[in-house]
Design a protein around this nucleic acid. Structure first.
Lengths: 193, 193, 193, 193
DNA sequence: AATGAATGAGCCTTCATTCAT
DNA sequence: TATGAATGAAGGCTCATTCAT
């Protein structure tokens, strides 16, 4: 069972995530976190000595479990279109709920901190590779058109990230979002006749 | 000839743009701008009383530039492919030079300022409309494939914005960037045969 | 005839007086005076190089001409009660019109500038002496009760000054003012029977 | 026992009072208070976020003191003359020590803050009422002459305030002050025979 | 572990004042 | 004389961070 300290830490991270989503990275101060968590300055500092630390912990806790999920689905032979549809739907919901917000904070955080850039690269590579394997899987099953896997995967990942990021600030209508996400699917699908 | 004051203002904006591109919005302080422009605090404040003001002036100046340039090119009958190519090349250069563009700064700026959010919507709409008219222009000249103008324009704008934004933080290789930008052009171009 | 410069100076002083009455001394900045007079910074500085200078010039221009007036009235044998009544009435009107205001600015100005304190002493002495000679005149004519001239004059001067000063900030009703001013007269008048 | 924070607050107020008495309101800066109290900027700001706040707290603390003291004395049946004498003596000492009192600072503070003007009115009313009850108390005990309570109280309050205010700027001799304060007492005392 | 008082650095903002035009 | 751009000092305010309790 986790110790008291660990539990407090998790709580802090959870609350901090909301703050970062709402305000971005640099606009969140330790004071804000004190207030939001109800901890005193000293109390908060016992666990994290800067917003940087909180943010990094948050990112680590936030790693997606898409890979595992996808592997399982592939094994089961779930149709690629269905998997992609599910993924896009998740994204749509996230955006609609205004939760897409962490990306902006991440960008804000990483910029001006060349040091850890590696982290972000890895995150991006990971996303691209996942997308690549999904596209390939779809092509093998004859559901997706043949295409330049690397390029298409990159394109989709970058586009979705852009959509998510922009959504944090521009109030896209549901219609626009749906239209765009749909378009992704249409673009890669084998043409029906 | 413009008065001294106006000239100084323009200079400030030009220099500020570089700063905002490099560091995002909130990381740029009035002090930074003083140093970068070589002005004293008071001198800077005579023209702008906050980074907000500088930024807004910058955005306004930025918009005008594009509009004018494109109108002129269309009048002259410049080929759509050339115009698009030029636009994409500009973007490529900007990214290559590490001037990840203003997008990130804009997002940062707008978040937490619901008031002016309208401003951002307008900017987005403006970009989409510009892209739409470029696509239409290309179609009329038989250079571009027919397509759903609105959707395609939105897609391109969001993608390019995402690419630019991500570039500010992820060190994409020249190859990746070129490949992606090229792909945009290929996607809309009329198929040769 | 006064030169252009002198005329501008007078105008500045006139406008400055209003400002000082309204806001006190330290709250008035050179910028305020620029705005109020419609002059540019440089223009104003040509005439006065600080609010101090403006204020001093203002005080010098503001010297009362009570002495002369009073001497004349005494020669004519105007009743002391009438003279005192006139003086008090002037004060009442001034307060009612909210014009009592300069005293506060003067205090603000003099405090922290021990140097020129002499100026204020003289102003006070002058007022006391005037009051003394008025009281004496009234006593000689049998209109005023005998009293300790010095003490009574001081008392009245200090009281009236306090009343004026307080009026700048506390919205005394007309009734209160009249009652208090009346009381002064009653106190010094020979009892009727 | 009061917490550390409260104690510090009181200390700040005590020291601030001296500063305000010496320099008036607007001439006192937060920096001055830092220096005077020995606190750092942040330390001071933890307790008060502006000189306004300090000043208001000061006024409130000030008021309470007087109220309590007088109530106690009346209960004990202390002679009115003695109470009045004590009050006047306090004032004399204050003036002699160059602590011209807060009046000037109060006036400076209130001007330009119409909002809180009510506060000042209340303070004035409070002072008048206190004086009224003291006069009444003295009359009931046969120590003071009968008089128009309201008018006399107003007169005394305004005069003393004027004396205090003027003292901050005009270097009255001890003799003048004593003479004037004495006169107040003589004016209200029952005539001995 | 937790509290909250205190520190000090850094940014923001306003002015009096100067100076080229 | 007048203009308004520019300077630099002074003061206001906020935060990350430390520390005694």
């Amino acid at each position: 069972m986790p110790k008291k300290g660990e539990r407090t830490k998790s709580e802090i991270i959870g609350i901090a995530k909301k703050e970062f989503c709402k305000k971005g990275f640099s606009a969140v101060t330790m004071s804000d976190l004190c207030e939001a968590t109800g901890l005193s300055r000293g109390g908060l500092y016992r666990h994290f000595s800067s917003t940087d630390e909180v943010f990094i912990a948050l990112l680590e806790a936030d790693k997606d479990d898409w890979q595992a999920e996808m592997d399982k689905a592939m094994e089961k032979g779930v149709p690629a279109i269905q998997m992609m549809g599910y993924y896009l739907e998740q994204m749509r919901t996230g955006i609609a709920e205004g939760a897409g917000g962490l990306s902006l904070a991440i960008y804000e955080f990483m910029r001006n901190k060349q040091v850890e850039s590696v982290f972000l690269d890895a995150r991006y590579d990971f996303a691209v590779n996942m997308m690549k394997s999904l596209l390939q899987y779809g092509q093998q099953r004859g559901e997706f058109k043949p295409c330049n896997l690397q390029m298409e995967a990159e394109h989709i990942v970058i586009f979705l990230d852009g959509l998510q990021t922009a959504s944090a600030v521009i109030p896209f209508s549901d219609e626009v979002i749906s239209r765009q996400l749909n378009n992704i699917l249409e673009t890669i699908k084998m043409e029906e006749r």
